[in-house]
Design a protein around this nucleic acid. Sequence first.
DNA 1: CTCTCTATCTTTACATCGTAAAGATGGAAT
DNA 2: ATTCCATCTTTACGATGTAAAGATAGAGAG
Lengths: 241, 241
Amino acid sequence: MAKSNTTGETARSPRIPKKTPPASRPARRAASAKAETPYHHGALREALLRAAERVLERDGLAGLTLRAVAREAGVSHAAPTHHFGDLTGLVSELAAIGFRQFNAAMASACDAATSPLERALARPKAYVAYAQAHPGMYGLMFRTERLDYSRPSLHEAAESSFAGLANAIGAMRQEPISGDALTIEQGAAIARAWSMVHGFTMLLLDGRLEDILERLPDGTTAEQLLEAILKSTVAGKLPPA
Amino acid sequence: MAKSNTTGETARSPRIPKKTPPASRPARRAASAKAETPYHHGALREALLRAAERVLERDGLAGLTLRAVAREAGVSHAAPTHHFGDLTGLVSELAAIGFRQFNAAMASACDAATSPLERALARPKAYVAYAQAHPGMYGLMFRTERLDYSRPSLHEAAESSFAGLANAIGAMRQEPISGDALTIEQGAAIARAWSMVHGFTMLLLDGRLEDILERLPDGTTAEQLLEAILKSTVAGKLPPA
DNA sequence: CTCTCTATCTTTACATCGTAAAGATGGAAT
DNA sequence: ATTCCATCTTTACGATGTAAAGATAGAGAG
């Protein structure tokens, strides 16, 4: 039954050029401009991750297999093993990339906001927008059971995402969130905001909100529904302008 | 790539005894008291579904395979094909059972409530409680991508679950929900309630609320956190006692 | 400059899975 | 009593994850 190998990870040292990284291999592969898949050396790890993201968004979670990624990158089916050790490893590193993209999208949306109302709506709207733009990635991050959060990259990226949420809630309540202690009200506020947006996103991606959307006036969009939810939630809780 | 056979379904007529159903097979398998797996005849379909639920709650979603279910039921690995046609078929029928259990749990919790506050909290609390008691089933119903909602049993059970939610929201707002048209406020209220409880449940089952729970006063439980969320959400929106 | 080492990649192999198709079996209808 | 056919088993095939052994080529030592 798959043996549940969570500790795997064969890669001894992921091929970091120690000396003279540039111009050491002069003319083996025509520089690296058009070399999508640098045959035996170079940046296979990154190429595999890019290939994995392509496969994921093209074929969905079920299509994201070690062999499909290797095919997409043009290498043998066992090549990913040396870089990620495991399917769990590859998937976890890709999820870490997803969390970083996700955090960046929300941060930039936050920066663009001006009024308090905008600042309150910017994050959740960016949250849902990212999931709609990258449904495969969002599913990888929140639907898969095959993630190894003990990996530093994934742990850090997910932690950073949570910290961003906590800070946003703290800012909205005008009381900075401490790093190591929360009141029950603070915890409830954070959990409520995250639960609502995450739940909305999952239900939306799963098509389960169609039953609601098609009963709303003419062509109401999911974004409008989300905005209605957010405004009714945030009503009266904003700091005075 | 699995060919995505969604239409499969071989079963021509699922062996419904047309005449003289009882006492027609007198003493082949020692009645049906201790006969867990009635060899060649009887209720293999139901036995498979029971076996599937056992496998699911024991080994999780990843362990729920056609062959594992067949092993658990003590039949050959191809036997489920004639009853469910497909892994999608088996999984969808099991999910339908899950939805029915789920609906029954929430209905009985609703009936037991007396005060308006209790009535408002009973459903969401029963929702989360069911998911915690049957994490495999809840994951099957809401995490799997391999469900076929065109199957009548699953469609009906899921629809009934949604109707129960809509009615509860309508009762709380003291304005019965129409079957075919919703105002934006009604849709937002339904989507908000569902999103929040579903999101909370998913985050809780995925262990993602641990970061919050361990920062709360001493040993605050998930139930207490949920109650704090619900009370702050429902504050001032209840009909007068 | 040559030789060896070793990380990287390929090949081969195996258990498991879903699914299709053909063979066996036994209750039920004629 | 005999035939039929739904049900179950057997066999087979392609796909997957993973382990292990073989090939390759860049890097470092002499």
